[in-house]
């Protein structure tokens, strides 16, 4: 089992001929993901690794058939057009790897996708991996098995690096992951922390979820609400990073575009609300495996 995608998903990569596009194509093929087509306007007819390149998504569909997932690997200012092309082609799942997309462009994509019932993961999402099943995006890089192992723990983080970091801690303690999802660092993202908890609740492989929270936004508050409402009943462990920044002036922007000091809520509020809801808020990041073993 895995959440969001399965190993039968047929994937198309937009921007497949770019530096990151070429790299991710081979990584995915090696992991067994079914990359069936790529798109770069003007480069139709080329081949990346073993994947045919087309000028448009429509052309790709007419040649290779149905597409389940589109991955977007284009420059930031081209992302809006690329995503709208995927939305118009009625692709049910769009993963946006691209970082630094203007927020207005993102809000337009998310608005249209929601209207049409299309799921967007990202922007600025490293991807999804269900170890030994499938992966989407650049998560795990060329050698995911060094870090990821199959098991009962769901992992959620805005940050791609922290997805791997948490997975490595879990794997080296002898546990493994059901699905690890990088939800993206931007201010507005298509699939939230709370959306994923609902998915993990339904997944029989997942026994507990670990999330890496950051300063800014109210994602953790929404998650706590789900627990309060009884919609998420499995153990939830959260580590919150960015306490150092609470002393900085309000509106200070940190590494991720969505990590904004004092925006909507503070870390203290998040800790309080999460604890009240029954989530485990960790003080020490390295305690994740020990705490997990207590609850599963």
């Amino acid at each position: 089992m895995a959440i969001l995608i399965d190993k039968f998903a047929r994937v198309l990569i937009q921007g497949i001929t770019g530096r990151s596009g070429v790299q991710v194509t081979s990584e995915l093929l090696n992991y067994g993901t079914k990359v069936v087509a790529g798109v770069t306007p003007g480069k139709g007819g080329q081949v990346v690794d073993t994947v045919p390149v087309f000028n448009s998504i429509q052309e790709a569909i007419s040649k290779v058939g149905k597409i389940d997932v589109v991955m977007v690997y284009v420059p930031p200012y081209s992302a809006k057009d690329a995503v709208f092309e995927a939305i118009n082609a009625k692709i049910p799942f769009i993963h946006i790897f691209v970082e630094r997309i203007p927020i207005l462009d993102t809000s337009k994509m998310l608005f249209e996708a929601k209207k049409q019932g299309i799921r967007i993961l990202g922007p600025a999402s490293v991807g999804i991996i269900s170890p030994q099943e499938v992966k989407i995006g650049s998560i795990g890089g060329p050698d995911p098995n060094q870090v990821f192992a199959k098991g009962p723990i769901g992992v959620i983080s805005r940050s791609g690096g922290m997805c791997s970091e948490i997975a490595m801690l879990i794997s080296s303690s002898g546990l493994g992951q059901s699905t690890v999802v990088g939800i993206g660092g931007d201010l507005l993202i298509g699939t939230s922390f709370a959306d994923l908890l609902l998915e993990f609740e339904q997944d029989i492989q997942t026994k507990a979820v670990v999330a890496f929270g950051e300063v800014g936004g109210r994602a953790e508050i929404e998650a706590a609400n789900l627990i309060d409402e009884g919609q998420f009943t499995k153990p939830l462990l959260v580590y919150l990073a960015g306490r150092f920044a609470e002393k900085l002036p309000k509106d200070t922007n940190l590494g991720h575009a969505g990590a904004i000091v004092g925006m909507e809520t503070t870390i203290e509020d998040k800790i309080k609300v999460l604890r009240q809801a029954g989530a485990i808020v960790l003080e020490d990041f390295t305690q994740i495996p020990t705490e997990l073993k207590k609850v599963i």
Partner: peptide, 8 residues
């Protein structure tokens, strides 16, 4: 390196 790790 990395938005999340930098905070940690």
């Amino acid at each position: 390196s990395g938005g999340g790790a930098s905070l940690l």
